[in-house]
């Protein structure tokens, strides 16, 4: 959505204001007060006209923006009610949280399943190796050897089975990473929506600026909310560009030890 450039009307008003000012001074100096008062009235009328124009334009742009972002006729699912782009974006981001969480849990489930299998194989192999060493040193009685014979057979069979289950788990861990493709696509959509909103907001702010100019309104920034001290900020995205953040655990440790930790 492209909003009209608000520049022209204002420059027209500024032009009139400039022209009229010198005329006004002339009239006042030459003592023609009645003409001067009429001129002031004309400037004022012109200012009001321009103000109405700008406010009207701003209102329309605001309305367009609201229409644009709130009605996203469900092309994908025509059966559902019309959904605002914002609500849609929120759903999309929640979907990303859910997908990444599910993937993390699936991966950890499979690792939790696999770790004891690997531990068991290691323990069995360790025990067998000890007995095997006794056999090599010819310290084993025949009946012990028959027992070892059977255990090696069991171990080989079990190793085969457990390796299958391990590689199955590894494959599922790989598959669980498939979320990255899906969440990536969703995030790209949300990013483009944010960019669109940003552009529109900038336009609206420009238009509102014209209204302020004509109406002579100035804004006081002093009541703007100050960020709360030590408010959490979450992960730092651009740590290299910032001096107020640490870039890793080493810097945390250095900072803390400089404080006597």
């Amino acid at each position: 959505m492209a909003l009209n450039s608000p520049g022209e009307q204002t420059s027209e008003f500024e032009q009139i204001l400039k022209e009229s000012t010198s005329e006004l001074i002339q009239k006042v100096e030459s003592g023609n007060l009645s003409d001067a008062v009429n001129l002031i009235q004309r400037i004022n009328d012109e200012r009001n006209r321009n103000l109405y124009l700008e406010v009207g334009r701003l209102t329309r742009a605001l309305h367009d923006a609201i229409t644009n972002f709130h009605i996203d006729v469900g092309v994908a699912s025509p059966a559902t009610e019309e959904m605002s782009k914002m609500a849609n974006a929120t759903d999309r981001l929640n979907y990303v949280i859910k997908m990444t969480q599910d993937a993390a849990n699936q991966t950890m489930d499979k690792v939790d399943e696999s770790a004891p299998v690997a531990d068991r194989l290691r323990d069995q192999a360790g025990a067998l190796r000890k007995d095997w060493a006794r056999l090599v040193r010819r310290e084993m009685k025949p009946e012990e050897f028959r027992e070892l014979y059977r255990r090696i057979d069991d171990f080989l069979r079990e190793t085969e089975e457990q390796s299958d289950s391990l590689s199955g788990n590894f494959n599922e861990i790989i598959l669980a990473q498939g979320y990255q493709d899906l969440t990536g696509q969703v995030l790209v959509k949300v990013i483009s929506l944010v960019q669109e909103i940003e552009e529109n907001l900038v336009n609206l702010v420009c238009m509102a600026g014209q209204v302020d100019k004509i109406s002579g309104i100035t804004h006081d920034d002093s009541d703007r909310e100050k960020p709360e001290a030590h408010a959490p900020e979450g992960p730092i995205i651009n740590a290299e560009e910032r001096v107020d953040v640490v870039s890793g655990q080493d810097e945390v440790d250095d900072l803390l030890s400089s404080l006597g930790f």
């Binding site: 959490p232 900020e233 979450g234 992960p235 730092i236 900072l255 930790f261």
Partner: peptide
């Protein structure tokens, strides 16, 4: 934590 601002680490300390 993911919080990595120096002033936060100092505040926590």
């Amino acid at each position: 934590t993911a919080e990595a601002k120096r002033e936060q680490i100092v505040a926590a300390a």
